[in-house]
Design a protein around this nucleic acid. Structure first.
Lengths: 247, 247
DNA sequence: CAGTGGTCTAGACCACCGG
DNA sequence: CGGTGGTCTAGACCACTGT
């Protein structure tokens, strides 16, 4: 054959672009600094804006950049380590970093949650909403699902509103004995409501942590926490390892 | 108080499209079934192919779809639950699900790894490569970094190749006492090499699990495992909770 | 208001897979 | 080979942010 194919696999432009930009971020930009706008950057690299955006999207996914409509693209600080370990404590126990927002009742929950709770369709549930914030930045949003039958003592909580109502429901939960819990972590995209709470656009990538709380041999509560994937690094520490390093 | 929340916000087309498709997947398609191709789908919904693709990307990110170049788009099975808990065991201990691939020596490691290991630049390290597979599908790729100084007994492993060499290094590690470990989970995008191993394109979203192994008050090994984010749900179970449900 | 990132279009070509 | 998804272009308009 005349024109022999060179060994090189043609690297996509956006991939190469991402590499170049990544190195530039390391060497030429400080955290918080704003980059040139997308149209200028695209022109500078001789590509269409869509291609440039594909590279920026990757970098944002990796937590290197932060883009905000109407403002610009800035260099992101390193990801925040967020502890998710807190072994064997109910949501709302002393020392957890969540802030109750409100609580509501509903008889319809996501199918995945219903499956974990082994509830019948239409069973009444408390849904407690909480947020997790660090230095003014929202990190995560959470919904805690609790079958109303499991916490009969908080029926009068219905008279309360806002955080007070959320506290009342969680307090009732803490009177039960917690015998076990487990967690799953998976990738998801932010629902519209979560996105608003996390100061992101709908569909933004999030880490979804699902915690199942077991009491008396039965799943008594399920918490679905959605963390901003761009800014968070979940840490599952063990206190003994940490203690060793500190000592 | 009621914010009357008058009408607002035109929903982006791709977002609405994603919702419609998602419902169609639930009701009209079976797992493994192939969807119409992107050009037909776009025409059917009256949008440009790029817009349709934006919706498909979201659904793939959520693990609902699987797209393969030259083949088509298929309905993905539910995500696989992958146990990451295995408390306090060295990599390669009996019963773990990883398959050693090979091992090599290097004096340069990623900056993030060097920081965890507190190694000096240029210090010689073993790098063990492993994979995790379920039912023929690759789930994860892993690199285990071990300072050569920590495992002096496996100097002659250099004569071996492939899995045998990886086994030799890990066996040496297991002779040490493991006093602690901790983990972090974050979102990343697959490097070219990982992508090949995971049967995905470079840049595919992955869950990066970084495990730090502590022995004698010092970090003796760091494992960086990259899981396919589209197909994996990481589970951090506690045996007691599981036992309760089983019993 | 001007400027930013976000959405969308209607094309084109390429890399890959199966028959 | 034909058909698939992956990449890329050169535009356009929209939604949001700051001043």
């Amino acid at each position: 054959m005349g024109t022999t194919q060179l060994e090189t696999v043609p690297e996509p432009k956006y991939w190469h672009l991402k590499t170049v930009l990544s190195e530039a971020l390391d060497s030429e930009f400080a955290v918080g600094e704003i980059l040139p706008n997308e149209r200028d950057l695209a022109a500078r690299f001789g590509v269409a804006r869509a291609t440039l955006r594909q590279a920026l999207e990757q970098l944002e996914l990796e937590g290197r950049l932060q883009r905000r409509r109407g403002v610009g693209t800035t260099v992101a600080p390193p990801r925040v380590g967020v502890a998710v370990a807190a072994r064997h404590t109910w949501p709302g126990a002393a020392g957890d970093d969540w802030q109750p927002v409100d609580s509501a009742q509903s008889d319809t929950v996501p199918a995945a949650v219903a499956r974990l709770l082994e509830t019948a369709p239409g069973e009444l549930m408390h849904i407690v909403r909480r947020t997790r914030v660090t230095e003014g930045q929202p990190l995560a949003a959470e919904l805690v699902y609790i079958p109303a039958a499991a916490v009969p003592g908080c029926a009068e909580a219905e008279l309360l509103t806002g955080p007070a109502r959320a506290y009342a429901v969680l307090r009732e939960l803490q009177s039960l004995e917690l015998t076990g819990q487990d967690r799953t972590v998976e990738l998801g995209s932010a629902r519209a409501e979560d996105a608003r709470q996390l100061d992101r656009l709908p569909g933004a990538p999030v880490l979804v942590v699902t915690t199942r709380y077991v009491s008396g041999g039965r799943t008594t509560a399920v918490a679905v926490s959605t963390y901003r994937a761009d800014t968070c690094r979940l840490t599952f520490g063990e206190s003994d390892a940490v203690a060793l390093l500190a000592g």
